[in-house]
Design a protein around this nucleic acid. Structure first.
Lengths: 185, 185
DNA sequence: GTCTATATTCCGATAGAC
DNA sequence: GTCTATCGGAATATAGAC
């Protein structure tokens, strides 16, 4: 089954949003690579805000499937897979979607913001549960509660996808490894 | 001594850059509050990239003065003051300048990127030295080396100024406090 | 679903007067 | 240093044909 045009637009939009920022790409940047016209993109997403809504929903879908697939794995393995996922973001020269939406926050209409909030809560809750499980199993140690630890891991790793644009690749690996090492019991 | 127009433009530009993003504000957003015309802003900064250079240099200046003023303070107090500074960023609805520049990275010309890199290295080195000192004095404990710890603190705190736009104020305080608690010996 | 054509608005930037 | 006036370009978005 081939990917629909709608799906292709979402994926390209996501790519541009995270590589350049919401206000730094245009419908032309989407229509050109797909060899369609500006107006065809507007058919699928009347306004840019509609596209942003779809991108946020797409991330909710992906994350939902990801968490289902990980449900049977050990806390430590779940966390490793999560961090490796961020490593692939970094390698593709994108930043994490949460930070991308956050810095462009005031360019987004409420309908977009709500979707982003729902996605972010999904991630934070998933991380919190993972950490709590790891603590209960004695695999992790931390002096903080689960949500605080989740927030620190999430903020460290998503900020790293931004920071390494300024410093160096090596710093990403440092942070990623330190997250795992610090939790290890 | 009153602030020069040039200085006012830089401060307003910095404010807009961090509240909305580099591509989300225009020269009109600067000229209107200052009650001058678009062209007057172009006189001081011919292109928007020139303004971005000045903003980055301004941060280097401020941070240089800050670190001089802190030189005699204890490592723990230096860190506390640094984190409180981020708290004031958060309260003013801005994000940290490093993350703002990073997410808009590909909209910036090399001359801007170089300034941003220099500023960021200033901050990371200052944090690393502070942490190393704290370790040597037995005030801090960490299983990581100084630069890695510095990267984790910096990324956690600057990402928090972004993340709380999506979640809640309370999460900022959680992260800030956890940074101090985790290091405490 | 995709096209052509176009309306409208806004932005960065410059010329030249004061 | 600030102004008026304006250029050229690009962006979002819509109307209507196919």
């Amino acid at each position: 089954m081939s990917t629909s045009t709608r799906e292709k637009i979402i994926q390209l939009g996501d790519d541009l949003l995270r590589k350049r920022g919401f206000n730094a790409f245009s419908y032309a940047d989407i229509s050109k690579p797909l060899h369609i016209k500006n107006a065809a993109v507007h058919y699928h997403f009347p306004s840019k805000q509609d596209l942003a809504v779809a991108i946020a929903q797409w991330h909710k879908d992906i994350f939902g499937r990801f968490s289902l697939k990980m449900a049977n794995k050990e806390p430590k393995d779940r966390l490793k897979t999560f961090l490796n996922f961020y490593h692939s973001i970094h390698l593709s020269e994108k930043v994490d979607i949460i930070g991308a939406f956050a810095t462009d926050w005031h360019s987004l209409e409420p309908k977009v913001q709500t979707e982003v909030q729902e996605f972010t809560e999904l991630v934070i809750n998933w991380l919190s549960e993972l950490i709590q499980e790891g603590l209960d199993l004695g695999q992790f140690r931390t002096t903080q509660n689960a949500r605080t630890t989740a927030l620190r891991i999430l903020s460290s790793i998503f900020a790293s996808t931004q920071l390494v644009r300024i410093t160096s690749d090596h710093d990403f690996t440092r942070v990623k490894n330190s997250i795992l090492e610090e939790l290890n019991n």
